[in-house]
Design a protein around this nucleic acid. Structure first.
Lengths: 140, 140
DNA sequence: TTGGGGCTCATACTAAAGTATGAATTATAA
DNA sequence: TTATAATTCATACTTTAGTATGAGCCCCAA
C-alpha cells in the first residue's frame, strides 16, 4: 500500500512537470523542451506499466482462495462425505489415517474411496488425485 | 504479436500528438491545450498499463515450460532414473505400468520407488507426490 | 409409508504397494 | 586401477489398497 502511494506521488509530480513544460515551451522555444516532454511521456508509460505489475502481484498473492467446482461435484454425484475423503487422499493419508481422522472404520473409508474411483472413472488413488485436480475439484 | 504492434502504433500516434500539442501551445495559448496534455498523459499511463497486461498474459500462457529444481534434486541425491520414475508415479501409473514404459522389471521400479521415498522422507506414493511438488521437483 | 440416497460397517477376497536384503553390471570419478 | 554411485533384478516377505457383496440405519421427498 505504501508503494502504491509513492507511485501515485511520482505520477502527480510527472504530471505537473508536464503542465509546467507546456507553459515553459511558450516562452523559450528550446529543443530541450520536446526532449523533456518525451522523457515525461516515457515516464508515464513506465508508471502505468509498474502500476499494472503492482496490481498483478497483489492479485496473485491473494489468489489462494480456492473453491472447488461444485457444479462438477454435482455432475459426478460426489457426496459431501466422499469429497471430504477425497481431500484426505490427496493430502497423502492412508485409509487408516483417514478413518481415524473422520472417526469411522477403515472399511467405511475403503467403501468411500472405491465409490469415488468409479465416479471419477479411475482405478488408483494417484489417478484419482490427478483427475480431481483436472476437474477443478482440488487445488493444484 | 499483432496486438503489440497495434499498441505501439497507438503509442507513436499519441507521442507525436504530444509533440504537436507542445508546438500548438506556443501559437494559441488556449485552455484546451493543458486539458489535451492531461488526456495524453492518461492515455500513456493506460498504454503502459495495458502493455504490462499483455506481457503478463503472454508469460502466463508460456509458463507451461516447467523445469524442476535441479539444485533440490542434487541436495536430495535423487538420480536421473529415480526422477523419471517419480514423474510416472505422479502421473498416476502403477509400478507395473512404469516398468513396462521404461522397459525394466516391476521389482526394479519398486526399488527405485522405495529409494525415492527414503530420500523424500515419506512412506506412500501419494505423500511422495505432494512432497515432490512442494519441493518444486514436479509441476503443480 | 415406502423408496431412494447417503453413510456406516463387516466379511472375504485379490491385487498392488512397500520393505529388506543381497547381488550383478556398468560407468565414472579419484 | 580402484573405489563409488547408478541401475538393474531377484526372493521373500508384510502391509495397504482395492473389489464385491450384503446389510443396517437415518433422513427426506413422493
Amino acid at each position: 500500500m505504501k508503494q502504491i502511494i509513492i507511485k501515485f506521488g511520482i505520477l502527480a509530480l510527472l504530471f505537473s512537470a508536464l503542465i509546467a513544460l507546456s507553459e515553459f515551451s511558450i516562452a523559450t522555444k528550446s529543443y530541450y523542451t520536446e526532449f523533456l516532454i518525451a522523457i515525461s511521456a516515457l515516464g508515464l508509460l513506465a508508471l502505468g506499466f509498474s502500476l499494472k505489475s503492482y496490481v498483478v502481484t497483489r492479485s496473485s498473492i491473494l489468489k489462494d482462495d480456492f473453491t472447488p467446482d461444485k457444479h462438477k461435484l454435482k455432475m459426478l454425484q460426489i457426496s459431501a462425505r466422499e469429497y471430504e475423503v477425497l481431500q484426505k487422499v490427496a493430502e497423502g493419508y492412508s485409509n487408516l489415517q483417514i478413518a481415524e481422522a473422520l472417526f469411522v472404520s477403515e472399511n467405511t473409508i475403503k467403501t468411500h474411496v472405491s465409490n469415488i474411483y468409479s465416479k471419477l472413472n479411475v482405478k488408483r488413488r494417484t489417478e484419482a488425485i490427478k483427475q480431481a485436480k483436472e476437474y477443478g475439484l482440488l487445488k493444484q
